[in-house]
C-alpha cells in the first residue's frame, strides 16, 4: 500500500515538473498556420530534411530509414541473443516471435498453396514495416528541416512516395509470382489487375495520412493536447497499424496465390 502511494506521488510530481518545464520554456509563436501545417503533412514540400547533405527529402524517407534500422537492429539482437536459446517448450517472447512468423507464413501458405516461400518472407517484412512504421510516429522523434525548424518525424507511409513504393513493390512481387509459376500467362494474369498498385498505394497513403492529419490537428492546438492524444493515438495509430498491416499482407498473399496458381490445360 505504501509503495502504491509512493508511486502515485512520484507520478504526480513528474507530471507537475513537466508542466512547469513546458510553461517556463515559453511559446515562441507558430512558424506556420494550421492550413500550411496540414498542407505540408500531405505534400511534404516545405519541411524537407537533408539526406546526408546530398538531397532534400521528405521526412517520411528519414522515418523509413530509421524504422528499417531499428527493426533490423532489433532483429539482429534477437538473432544473436534470443534465437540460439530457443526451447522446444517456448517462453512468452519466443511464443510471440513464433506466432508472428507463423501468422505470415500461414497466411502465405493458405492464400498461395502452390508457391509460398518468397511471398511469406515478403509479407512478413512488409507487415513489420507497416506495423512498426505506423507506431513509429508515437515516438515523436524530431528532425531538423532544411530551413532549420524542428519537425516531428511522421509515419513513413504517410509520405505518398513511401506508399507508392510499397504498393508498386508489392505489385512487382505479385508479378514475379505469376512469372515464376506461369511464365507469360502469369504476366497476363497479373497485368489484368493493373489497378492494384494504385489502389494499394493510395489505400495505404489515405489510411495513414488520415491518422497523421488528425494527429497534426490535435497537436496544433494546445487546448486539445491533454487526454485527447491518448484516444487519438490509439484510434488512428494503433488500429491503423493493425488494420493496414492485415489488409496489405492479405491482399498481396491472395493476389500472389491467384497468379501463381498453375493453369490447367483443357482436356480435348
Amino acid at each position: 500500500m505504501k509503495q502504491h502511494k509512493k508511486a502515485l506521488v512520484l507520478w504526480i510530481g513528474a507530471v507537475l515538473l513537466l508542466l512547469i518545464g513546458a510553461l517556463l520554456a515559453g511559446f515562441h509563436g507558430r512558424t506556420e498556420s494550421v492550413q500550411q501545417a496540414m498542407r505540408d503533412a500531405v505534400l511534404h514540400d516545405v519541411n524537407q530534411i537533408s539526406l546526408l547533405g546530398l538531397k532534400a527529402v521528405n521526412p517520411g524517407l528519414i522515418s523509413a530509414f530509421l524504422v528499417t534500422g531499428l527493426i533490423l537492429l532489433a532483429a539482429a539482437l534477437i538473432r544473436v541473443l534470443v534465437i540460439p536459446r530457443f526451447q522446444y517448450i517456448p517462453g512468452k517472447f519466443q511464443l510471440a516471435l513464433e506466432e508472428a512468423v507463423g501468422l505470415f507464413h500461414g497466411m502465405a501458405q493458405n492464400s498461395s498453396p502452390h508457391r509460398y516461400g518468397f511471398v511469406g518472407a515478403y509479407i512478413f517484412a512488409a507487415g513489420a514495416y507497416i506495423f512498426f512504421g505506423t507506431l513509429f510516429e508515437l515516438l515523436g522523434l524530431q528532425g531538423i528541416t532544411i530551413h532549420g525548424h524542428p519537425v516531428t518525424l511522421p509515419a513513413p507511409l504517410s509520405d505518398v512516395n513511401a506508399a507508392i513504393a510499397l504498393g508498386t513493390l508489392s505489385y512487382l512481387v505479385i508479378l514475379s509470382g505469376g512469372i515464376a509459376a506461369n511464365g507469360a500467362k502469369g504476366v497476363g494474369k497479373t497485368l489484368k489487375e493493373f489497378s492494384l498498385p494504385i489502389s494499394m498505394s493510395f489505400r495505404l497513403f489515405g489510411a495513414l495520412l488520415s491518422g497523421l492529419l488528425v494527429t497534426e490537428l490535435v497537436y496544433y492546438y494546445v487546448n486539445l493536447s491533454f487526454v485527447l492524444p491518448v484516444i487519438v493515438g490509439v484510434m488512428f495509430t494503433l488500429l491503423h497499424a493493425l488494420i493496414q498491416t492485415y489488409v496489405l499482407t492479405m491482399l498481396v498473399s491472395m493476389y500472389y496465390g491467384e497468379v501463381s496458381e498453375p493453369s490447367h490445360k483443357a482436356k480435348s
Binding site: N58, V160, T168
Partner: peptide, 28 residues
Amino acid sequence: LNIDLQQILLHWMNLAILTGGLYLLLYK
C-alpha cells in the same frame, strides 16, 4: 502530390534491405 521517383527508388531500396535482412535474421 510531391511524388518523387528518386525517393520512391530510395524507399524500394529500403524495403529490399528490410525484406532481405528480416528474412535472414528473423524469418528463416
